[in-house]
Amino acid sequence: MSAAPVLERPAVEPHLDPALAAREDVRPTGRRLGPGRRRRLAWLLGPSVLLGLWTVSSATGLLDPRILSEPWTVVATAGELIADGRLQENLAISAQRAGLGLFFGIVVGAVLALLAGLSRVGEALIDGPVQIKRAIPGLALIPLLILWFGIDETMKVLTITLGVFVPIYLQTHAGLRGIDLRYVELAQTVGLSRAAFIRKVVLPGALPGFFLGLRFAVTGAWVSLVVVEQINATSGIGYMMELARTYGQTNIIVLGLAVYGILGLLSDGAVRFLERKALSWQRTLAG
């Protein structure tokens, strides 16, 4: 038998069918340029490495607890705050604010994007103002919002909404505008009504853009939340951290940061999960 170029490692996992698994499987294997198959929970690796570094630096005394509390102190603090109910209470309020702001922002952004994407009049009316809003840092509006709405929940939810709707609008609008004109022609030749055209072509075609916007929006919602909760708030995770700053309680500040981080990671994961389900027709490197 002549020597064929054969890689040492097995190219693929054994076949599921036991009859085939026993057979010889020798093949030349080229270099693969794509990132390969998806692995479950692979996204946990990066955060775990960070957590590991933090733990080791604290344990070896490399990291002064006055600068950054040790992980176990933060866990203990979490235990105490859960025991006396403060963490859940503040978390529930924070989640409610972020959720409401996100909901209104998604609705406003998606509706504006549809109006601007489907009619020239809509685009002329809507796109300019949104671009102006985009140029103004969302947090610079807070003084005005406080003057108008006071410091209650309305102001907080509105600030988050204003931060959320912009990326939803931008990405959904870009998605709509990016729909191939060939599909529009097709819709015309098969005689789709306008409603059916929107349902069958426009909405599915804009969905990838919408999900991209949603990922920006979810992150943006937490960012806005942090800011509104550290200004004149009397509840919420941000308030809890702000209070801890006054008393120099690094452990509570770090706990707040960890909670924000976990919430952000979980919500991004949730959006990505939805995205994979909704866009299963796509064939991309993300797999």
Binding site: R182, E185, T189, K200, P204, G205, L207, W281, Q282
Partner: peptide
């Protein structure tokens, strides 16, 4: 109409 590309909606 049949086009040069099949023009199938990729999401359907």
């Amino acid at each position: 109409v049949v086009f040069q590309d099949s023009r199938l909606l990729p999401w359907d």
